[in-house]
Design a protein around this nucleic acid. Sequence first.
DNA 1: GCGGATTGTTACCGATCGGTAACAGTAGTG
DNA 2: CACTACTGTTACCGATCGGTAACAATCCGC
Lengths: 202, 202
Amino acid sequence: MNTVKSEDPNLAEPAGRPRVRDRIFETACELFYRHGIRAVGVDAIACEAGTNKMSFYRSFASKDELVAEYLRYKDRHFWTWWDEVVAPHVGQPRAQVEALFQAHVNKTCSKESRGCGLANAAVELVEDEHPGRAVVIAHKSEIRRRFRALAKAMQAREPEQLGDALMLLMEGGYLARLTFAKGGPVSSALPAARTLMDAHGA
Amino acid sequence: MNTVKSEDPNLAEPAGRPRVRDRIFETACELFYRHGIRAVGVDAIACEAGTNKMSFYRSFASKDELVAEYLRYKDRHFWTWWDEVVAPHVGQPRAQVEALFQAHVNKTCSKESRGCGLANAAVELVEDEHPGRAVVIAHKSEIRRRFRALAKAMQAREPEQLGDALMLLMEGGYLARLTFAKGGPVSSALPAARTLMDAHGA
DNA sequence: GCGGATTGTTACCGATCGGTAACAGTAGTG
DNA sequence: CACTACTGTTACCGATCGGTAACAATCCGC
């Protein structure tokens, strides 16, 4: 994130990186993911970050803005992960999908996992005007777009349907992780993805 | 305030039931589903039900207990729906699954849908000791059990994998509904389920 | 009519929510 | 050194949270 130069379009402190802000943000990301957005107050964030609420509001305009920034961070983090998983199989879309699902299962089955932070935010942030909702919608739309593009790249029959089905499998895994601690249905995501791709002639 | 005499004609419940409790519960169910559990306070529930907080606490021990009862209601409602969808195809497990996914897509694509109330609760209720968590876990476990049983009944190869995959598809649809208003990937759930069952020789 | 049970009403409790004002201390830089 | 930016501290705001006490008004069966 911003360590040297601030790319903030509207006015903000152009230079002089306060370490406090980063500590607060880091703490907030962890607490939001672990306990949920609504369950974590700004006081708890500031306290856990070793500072206080006043310093919080010197770095962030509001809690909603912090939430939006948390979601943007999660979004960037996700695509970094995606690109890294996909990188070893350039030009082999089917292998890319298999690697994605393998990595997805591994990630989702880890003990600290609480599914997808952006999907969880979709449940918690109901108000349409919340600045985080747009981030979530854009994120999930991009997932859909990429899965469909992969399906098309592997020359599957009815690539849109295959792409959507792959997305449903992945999202279902995130949701299932919240109720099944280990050995949940997530483990079947990879073979199911393979089966679907086979059936679509990819 | 509300009318002195209840013009509610349908009142076939066991006689002597306090009408206030039912009104509160009904209101709570709608608000919890529409806006989320944490987003709705007991004051808002009581007010929307045309009564006040004191009457609320005369009918319910706590908000957490009401939430648990809301989830138990959702659970019962879900299995009623499931059994009704499945009923016309007794002895034909594959037709049952297809009917389930067809009905699932219809239900999930409706304008008022906000996915699965129990799955949403899994996101919101993080504390292990919350009385609602057990309801959610039992519900999702039963879904898994039934899908696996259906897969086995249709003599599919690797029925556990097929059952889990079907569950992932359905759960993914619930989650996707929260970000995709209409025309989302949910529409591909039925063909994907068919493809999977075909591939498993069912 | 009466009595008991169910309601409505008001006020209150301590805690926490998101958010702010005012001021004192510290850090770094010229 | 002084000047400035950043941070810590304390107290406070109005609102809302889940939950309760006390009392008045109503309902209903007898």
